Amino acid sequence: MLIGFAKSGWAQPLGGQRVFSFLNLPTHARVAALGGQVATAIRPDAAYFLNNPALADSLRQNELTISLMPYLAAAKYYTLHYGLPVKTKGMWAVGMQYLSYGQMPLTDPLGNTLGTFSANDYALGLTHARTEGNFSLGATVKMVGSAIETYSAFGILADLGGVWRHPSGNLTFGLTARNFGYLIKNFGPTDANLPFDLQAGVTLKPRYAPFRLTITAHHLQRFDISYNDPNLNVRFDLNGNPIPQTLSPVEKAARHLSAGVEFLISPNVHLMAGYNHQKRQEGRLTTGGGLAGISLGASVQVRAFQLTYARFAAAPTAGTSQLSLRVDLERIMQ
């Protein structure tokens, strides 16, 4: 139904003007530790339904997860996820994403200070998921907004997802379409692209192996998602024009992939590592890469509480951390 909207995000390119890019940030520390993109999981955390709404079917009622990420400079990124205590078929949940850029100086064209202003992005969504046999389906509807001083943008977006679980083995396939919908208001008179992302993933645990492997393919709606900065070209033709970098089809396909492994040290202690090839290659454009695209994490469960920490880098000098706390309020109230 939303496909025909003039400002829909079904087939928008990655380049150009975009809004609501914060929706691509990891929604949970486990997601960040496993490469930043997760479309499926064998034992999903409470926050996984923000990546694939079908995974909300395994969410507990009154299960709360809060995540914090110190982003770039003074910016801070928060997420909240909660399983609603609604006694109906399927599972209902609410999720929130909030990115605050802090206070910034407001100046006139001459550089005179006039005060300060703030900027923030936010998304508030309602998710429903239902399981029939080995299949789970889910949908999220969310209000998304962005504000910079007196300028603002607002839209109604949705996510759709499905998951298939092997009836006896530790194998799960997932497919999700994220962030499509309608941009009601933009910062200016021009249209902008929504951060639509079509993802597919698989999670498996080999029998007797002490680890789980997750592989995710993202931005499947467009084959070439490589970024070519003309300012970084070092080759020129006979007329002095820069020659764009060319990539092989194999490299273009690899840019869609991220992978993560979770080591099951014990039932309550897990270690994680991830790799995102697109972020790795983009981080190598200027300084060789460093740790760009590589992520690490750990998770500890103690009764009704689970604490997860991740450290990752999207660029050689732009590393950050994410901390997530899950609380099973139902278990505490018993």
Rank of each mutant, 00 (worst) to 15 (best):
L72R: 11
G293L: 01
W164Y: 09
M96P: 00
D328Q: 12
L99T: 02
R331D: 10
A54Y: 00
G283R: 03
A304I: 11
Y82G: 01
M96F: 12
R280Q: 13
R284W: 02
T190S: 12
P249T: 10
G201Y: 01
G174L: 00
A39L: 02
S146H: 08
Q322E: 06
R178N: 10
L110R: 10
L238G: 14
H277L: 13
P70Y: 02
D57F: 15
M104I: 15
Y48H: 11
Y182A: 12
Q12G: 13
L238E: 13
A74E: 09
F5D: 07
A200I: 07
G4Y: 10
P13W: 05
Q306W: 03
Y78W: 10
L213S: 08
R222A: 13
L171F: 14
N179V: 05
R43V: 09
S118F: 07
A273G: 11
Y182N: 13
P210L: 03
N268A: 04
S248R: 09
G188D: 15
I225W: 01
Q301Y: 02
R165M: 02
L106A: 11
A73I: 14
R331H: 13
A153E: 04
E132D: 13
I3R: 15
L25S: 11
V19D: 01
G83M: 07
L171M: 13
T287N: 10
M91T: 14
Y227F: 15
G297C: 08
